[in-house]
């Protein structure tokens, strides 16, 4: 181990140039793997897809009607948003709390505090060790990615954080990694806690005070506490409450918002309100 720690700097220095060469190869192999997977999956899912098409057609009809109704609401919301932006820019309205600024920041495209940038990336490799859950993506330092930046998938659901950055690629620590801990909040009860990855690939909600309420199907989002991650990113839903009243804190099993086995394209959030990862030196 002493040898490991002493020699760690030399191979790390070699990773930068090597990643430039390896990344296209990894993309090629990953693409071939996806193609193989697609062939088998599409054959097996044909029947399922037929049923889904019928279901989706019904949903399209319903959503078309709902869309018309939402357009009316949109005009109304725009007015409220203007009011909130005005409030955050005007010192007289200092009494407006940070949540309100955050809401305005997320929604208004021109606000200085808005979610400014995200880098789209493809997943090109997985960690060879069966004991850690990391993905390699094809964006790195040259694309503005830094350690600690959040990585999201479809629906802005949190996938994990950037654990290591090379010149042309980065390694993402998934939420389900046994060494991943994220501060979260239960949407309905506002209870805060920590979501920890488990070896079996599940998520466990921990450190929720006994006085707070937890219900099955409650939605879990990032709390933004500590500034490592922006708030309100979906993490999952409570599947099962596993603690008893005798315990100091409540615990629950969380069903992740994303299928970690089928992640292909991700988005790295490079700048967001109150996110400390953007402040780290390149």
């Amino acid at each position: 181990m002493l040898v490991l720690s002493l020699s760690s700097q030399i191979p790390r220095a070699a990773e930068g140039p090597l990643s430039v060469v390896l990344t296209p190869l990894q993309q090629l192999f990953s693409g071939a793997g996806s193609a193989i997977n697609d062939v088998f999956r599409s054959a097996g899912e044909l029947q399922d897809l037929r049923q889904r098409v019928q279901t989706l057609q019904r949903q399209v009809d319903e959503l078309s009607i709902e869309n018309l109704r939402l357009r009316e609401f949109q005009a109304e919301v725009r007015q409220y948003r203007d009011l909130l932006n005005f409030a955050s820019q005007n010192p007289i309205y200092d009494v407006v709390g940070a949540d309100v600024i955050g809401l305005s920041a997320t929604c208004a495209p021109d606000d200085a505090n808005r979610l400014r940038a995200g880098v789209c990336a493809n997943v090109i490799a997985s960690d060879p060790s069966p004991f850690s859950r990391y993905l390699t993506i094809n964006v790195g330092r040259q694309h503005g990615v830094r350690v600690g930046m959040p990585v999201v998938g479809g629906g802005l659901a949190l996938i994990g954080r950037v654990g290591q950055v090379n010149e042309a690629s980065s390694q993402v620590q998934l939420l389900i990694d046994p060494n991943s801990y994220v501060n979260v909040q239960v949407v309905s009860s506002r209870a805060t806690g920590t979501v920890a990855g488990q070896s079996d690939g599940s998520l466990r909600l921990q450190n929720v005070p006994q006085t707070d309420n937890l219900e099955v199907d409650d939605i879990i989002v990032t709390s933004g506490l500590g500034g490592a991650l922006p708030g309100q990113l979906p993490v999952g839903r409570i599947e099962r409450i596993i603690s008893t009243d005798a315990q100091l804190f409540k615990e629950a099993i969380v069903r992740p918002a994303v299928d970690f086995n089928r992640i292909e394209i991700v988005l790295v959030i490079t700048a967001a309100p109150n996110m400390t990862a953007t402040l780290q030196a390149p």
Partner: peptide
Amino acid sequence: LLALALTETSLLPAALGGGLRPGLV
């Protein structure tokens, strides 16, 4: 050897999903 390493880390995860995969290398 490089092809085996790339198959183990890139091709197999994409083809098999997140399940257990053999240590080809």
